[in-house]
Simulated scan of single mutants.
Amino acid sequence: MKDRNGLQKAMYADLKATFALSAQPVVRAVMKVVDAYATLKTNLRAGNLGPPTRSGTASASPSAPIGVAPQSRPRER
Score class of each variant (00 low, 15 high):
N48D: 15
V30E: 01
G47A: 11
T39M: 09
L44I: 12
A46K: 10
L44E: 04
L15M: 04
Q71T: 10
R54W: 03
A13Q: 08
L44Y: 01
A38G: 10
P65S: 14
G67D: 14
R28I: 15
R75D: 10
S72E: 13
K2N: 11
D14I: 08
R28G: 13
S59L: 12
S72R: 14
V30T: 12
A10T: 05
T57S: 05
P70T: 01
D3K: 09
Q24M: 14
P70K: 11
T18L: 07
G47P: 00
G6C: 04
G6S: 11
A69T: 09
L44G: 02
T42I: 10
P25G: 01
R75L: 13
T57E: 04
S63N: 07
T39C: 09
L49H: 02
A17C: 08
I66C: 09
R4W: 13
N48Y: 11
R54D: 06
F19D: 06
T57M: 10
P65I: 12
S55P: 15
Y37R: 02
A46T: 08
P65G: 12
R73N: 14
V68H: 03
R45S: 14
E76T: 01
S59F: 13
K9W: 06
K16T: 00
L40D: 04
G67H: 15
N48F: 11
P65F: 06
V34Y: 06
A64T: 01
E76M: 09
